[in-house]
Amino acid sequence: MNLSRDNQYDAKDRLSGVGLQALRDEDLIVKVQEGDRRAFDEIVARYKGRLYSFILRMVKDPTTADELTQETLIRVFIHAEKYREIARFSTWIFTIATNLVRNTMRKRSRRPRLLSLNPAPEENEAIIDPPDPTADPSRGIEGEELGDLIAQATSKIPEKYRIPFLLREVEELTYEEIQQVTGLKLGTVRSRINRARNKFRQLIKPMLKNESLLADLERLEARAQQDRDQE
């Protein structure tokens, strides 16, 4: 059989691609350590969305979140040999992301802020107010809009509570993994998650009374389930 070089490459690609999808994250990173770029592509496919979602909720700016997601993945590739299987791969990658986020936020806080002459409401007292569905009954809260409202609410949780909260609620890391990522004591992790949940509940409380929002939430969940089934 006389395959062209491109065809040979594709065939090899397909074969290895099938194998890689079945591997654990920890096995993939071992392959990356051996110089396998396809294994790295698989890691990117698995983590890019999770990382972006986590980082965006921390930094609030999509461009910065995109940038930091790329930076995290590049660091994973470049420093792959530093990974040892004493911790789960997800713990390691979220540690890198968390450190990058912290550095970015620290740099941001050092920048001088412009003071407004109009007094703004206290951040902690601000409550997220969803649009009133009774004003236009035909219009529910769209998914994007709901996302913005939640992003707004999340950003009002103080950073020290937000990191463990998001790692638990969105990334579903265990308490021990969050302890490793943040370097906090286990008791502190527990209490911070509890406080953040309480804070988040206060912030979204008005939304939870909104029937159309709950309907919208169910629609979003059904769509997400459909996407998962298709994959």
Partner: peptide, 13 residues
């Protein structure tokens, strides 16, 4: 419900 909302509104790249 808060947990469900957070999971449902994950941003896309």
């Amino acid at each position: 419900t808060g947990h469900r909302i957070l999971k449902a509104t994950e941003s896309q790249l």
